[in-house]
């Protein structure tokens, strides 16, 4: 690859990046925003993290994360309990938003990462990798598991005066999931993945887009 020119997403400044890349963060010379991070081994680490995340996600959703007991009556809640009750009360907007932000989108995120990184780890690029990356990019801001964890903590404090709160099996899995997702988020950088996709496109193994004029 010839002289590598990068355009800053925040301020539109062009900067030339000398090759080969050295590990670390590349900053925009104008505004100081991160252009990209070069981290050898990112794909391997991210792959490992998404396998762990998938397991923890399944555990989290299968077991109840909190139980609540008042005068001998007890209730269990897992991630879809509230969705079900909201749906029964015909609060459809709340039900859909809750289901999307805490179950569907986080799962899609983890699942897409696995589908992408699994083959990448073995040196292949999936044919639909560009589409997968586009979906991943679009849904990421709407995954709110970390916010949900804070919501759980606030609810515990709110309910602790009304009855007995029993942390469920999945609360620990959930807390670990948040840690793993936070770590994955901190090392995630789309640039090396897009470069692999580009290599794959040049070799004709990955979906290409015909250049069109507007």
């Amino acid at each position: 690859m010839e002289a590598h020119i990068v355009c800053c997403h925040e301020c539109d400044e062009l900067s030339t990046i000398p090759r080969p890349l050295r590990p670390g963060r590349y900053k925009c010379p104008n505004c100081g925003h991160t252009l990209f991070r070069h981290r050898p081994g990112m794909i391997e680490k991210l792959y490992a993290m998404s396998v762990a995340a998938l397991i923890l996600f399944l555990v989290t959703n299968y077991f109840p994360f909190l139980s609540f007991e008042v005068f001998g009556n007890s209730t269990d809640a897992n991630f879809t309990t509230a969705v079900q009750y909201l749906y029964e009360e015909q609060d459809y907007l709340l039900a859909v938003a809750l289901l999307m932000t805490t179950v569907v989108i986080p799962f899609a995120q983890i699942f897409l990462l696995l589908l992408l990184l699994g083959p990448l780890y073995h040196g292949r690029v999936p044919y639909y990798a560009p589409e997968m990356m586009k979906v991943l990019e679009a849904i990421t801001p709407w995954a709110m598991l970390d916010v949900f964890l804070v919501g759980v903590l606030v609810s515990i404090v709110k309910l602790v005066k009304m009855g007995t709160i029993i942390p469920g099996t999945s609360l620990w899995a959930f807390a670990s999931l948040i840690l793993i997702l936070a770590y994955a988020q901190s090392i995630y950088d789309p640039h090396p993945i897009w470069e692999k996709i580009e290599e794959g496109q040049n070799e004709g193994r990955v979906k290409r887009y015909v250049e069109r004029d507007a």
Binding site: F68, A77, T101, M144, G151, V154
Partner: peptide, 28 residues
Amino acid sequence: GRWSMVDVFVVSIMIALVHFGGLSSIEA
């Protein structure tokens, strides 16, 4: 921006946990 969702989540979790039929329940 996304952290404002906390209150919506708190309401949902309360709805899920405080659900004792006629005895006591929470509605959004």
